[in-house]
Simulated assay, not measured.
Amino acid sequence: MSSDAHEPGERPIRVLVVEDGDEYITNLTTFVAEGIDYRQAKSGGRACEMLAEVEPDLVYLDMRFDRTPVEELLGDMVQLTGRFNGDIGRARRFQQDNQGLFILRALRDAGFRKPVILSYDFGAEERRFRALSAKDPALFYCPDYADAKTIRRAILAVVRG
């Protein structure tokens, strides 16, 4: 197979990019575009709505959502606040810092079983990633600082298996 994402005549790889800004979609559509069709959702709720419409082969998911309006964040704030002994500020930061995991759960609950690449640096948290991927074998990660070539390799490796 060539270095292209797909053979001539095949449909492009469909990737749903879930992020609260436009950095990933801009980088991916500019530098990692050949043979890949990207769609974007800026919240977990919207990502779940788009699953049937887009029929993605892969979800590329940001971990941190600090620009999303709080009413669009997934996760039970009552439960999170209890976890942080009533500290709403800490609970909200946890919800934002780990929103990707809340979205991952919502995608799986919506029936999406295909691969998800979390854009997050688990390099210093390998045990955490091993625990997550043990529960979800279709979960992968690509460091959030990765260059376009690394991201492309990760997408192609995951989709091709």
Rank of each mutant, 00 (worst) to 15 (best):
S3D: 15
S3G: 15
D4N: 13
E7R: 12
G9E: 05
G9Y: 03
G9F: 05
E10L: 04
I13P: 01
R14P: 00
V15T: 01
D22H: 12
E23L: 11
E23I: 02
E23V: 08
I25P: 02
T26W: 02
T29I: 04
T29L: 04
T29Y: 01
T30M: 12
V32W: 00
A33L: 07
A33Y: 09
E34L: 09
G35F: 04
D37P: 00
D37F: 10
Y38F: 14
R39A: 14
G45S: 11
G45Q: 12
G45I: 06
G45T: 11
R46I: 14
C48Q: 09
E49Y: 03
L51C: 11
A52Q: 13
E53N: 04
V54Q: 07
V54D: 08
E55H: 06
P56W: 06
D57P: 01
L58S: 06
L61V: 06
L61C: 08
D62K: 11
R64K: 15
T68A: 12
T68C: 14
P69I: 04
V70S: 12
V70E: 15
E71I: 04
E71P: 00
E72S: 12
E72F: 07
E72Y: 03
L73D: 07
L73T: 09
L74P: 08
G75C: 09
G75V: 09
M77W: 01
M77L: 15
V78R: 10
Q79K: 14
T81L: 01
T81C: 11
R83G: 08
F84E: 04
N85P: 00
D87P: 01
I88Q: 14
A91Q: 06
R92G: 03
R92N: 07
R92T: 14
R93H: 11
F94A: 13
F94N: 12
Q95Y: 03
N98T: 10
G100L: 08
L101I: 07
I103N: 05
I103F: 01
I103S: 02
R105E: 15
R105M: 07
A106H: 03
R108M: 08
R108Q: 10
D109A: 15
A110Y: 06
A110S: 15
G111D: 10
F112C: 05
R113M: 12
V116E: 10
V116N: 09
I117C: 03
F122H: 05
F122A: 04
G123L: 05
A124W: 02
A124D: 13
F129I: 03
R130K: 15
S133Q: 15
K135Q: 14
K135L: 15
D136P: 03
F140M: 03
F140T: 00
Y141W: 14
D144M: 03
A146L: 00
A146F: 00
T150W: 00
T150F: 02
A154P: 00
V158K: 01
V159H: 01
V159N: 01
V159G: 01
